[in-house]
Design a protein around this nucleic acid. Structure first.
Lengths: 145, 145
DNA sequence: CCAAATCATACTATATCAGTATGGATTTTG
DNA sequence: CAAAATCCATACTGATATAGTATGATTTGG
């Protein structure tokens, strides 16, 4: 029941791009340094975000990435599903293909459905904008000490 | 973010033992047949339940297993944590040892905390007795057609 | 004693995870 | 124009987890 580094890093990349968004394009190298993530691994992850259109890229010297749309339009759930795949706790819930023969009489399936709903409810109600806001509040709070 | 077969089967075993509990000891072979799970794999799983005292065993001919205490005393969460390990979505939440250096400034950690709480809230509020009840209701319902 | 059962380990094949490594394509800049 | 900087694509790797099989020892009722 773990979220892999891929998904977690992807969320952090989106947050980083949102926080540091000045209109300029941001290099993978800079994100990697700030987030303390391997550059090459990060390239792979951001490439997924790029192909999905969550970020925009410019190649060549002075190139880089920037967040494509308003941070409020990206939920943690969207980012995780994109990078991790399904967030369902069991494959039975993914689609009709994976339905097993026991589904009709499977008492535990109900529990997994409740679990899936609870998970979705959290990740689909936190946006990247929320994370930006929380970070700014925390920084503001730390100054007032 | 998947629950493995080990955890899922363990829940089904506990449910099976609760439903078929007559005081007699139930053979792995019978559970395996009803649940359509490999006997040998099931042995390994039920062995974990046994060592934790969730089931009681009798060896030798006419031996088998029975649920140790009242089904209402076992939550799905207990069974899953026993067989799967931690249900936390990230290792940072497991204990103080796994805490990373970024924890203080990690905005995403809050999300993982919320997620862990949501997961716990589901699995810790469903007992094996609830599953038994649901099954009996479903069977009763199917007769009335 | 023997058959039936649990108990204990070791083994295996496959997949996933968390990256590295290598090199190509594109663009700015000296 | 060439070199440097950057993104882009793909292959490879070591470690771990998953989902079992396989083998055999131990215990017990008949």
């Amino acid at each position: 029941m773990r979220i892999s580094t891929k998904g977690r890093y992807a969320v952090r990349v989106m947050l980083d791009l949102a926080v540091n968004n000045t209109g300029e394009y941001i290099k993978v190298k800079d994100i990697a340094a700030r987030q303390e993530i391997s550059e090459k691994y990060l390239e792979q992850i951001i490439s997924v975000l790029n192909k999905a259109g969550y970020v925009k890229s410019v190649r060549g010297a002075q190139g880089g990435y920037r967040i494509a749309r308003d941070p409020a339009e990206y939920t943690v759930g969207m980012i995780l599903r994109l990078t991790e795949g399904s967030l369902n706790p069991v494959a039975c819930l993914d689609d009709d293909i994976n339905e097993c023969e026991r589904c009709d009489t499977c008492e535990t399936l109900e529990v997994w459905k409740e679990l899936a709903a609870a998970i979705d409810n959290v990740v689909d109600h936190v946006t990247v904008a929320d994370l930006v806001e929380r970070q700014q509040e925390r920084i503001a709070g730390s100054y007032s000490i």
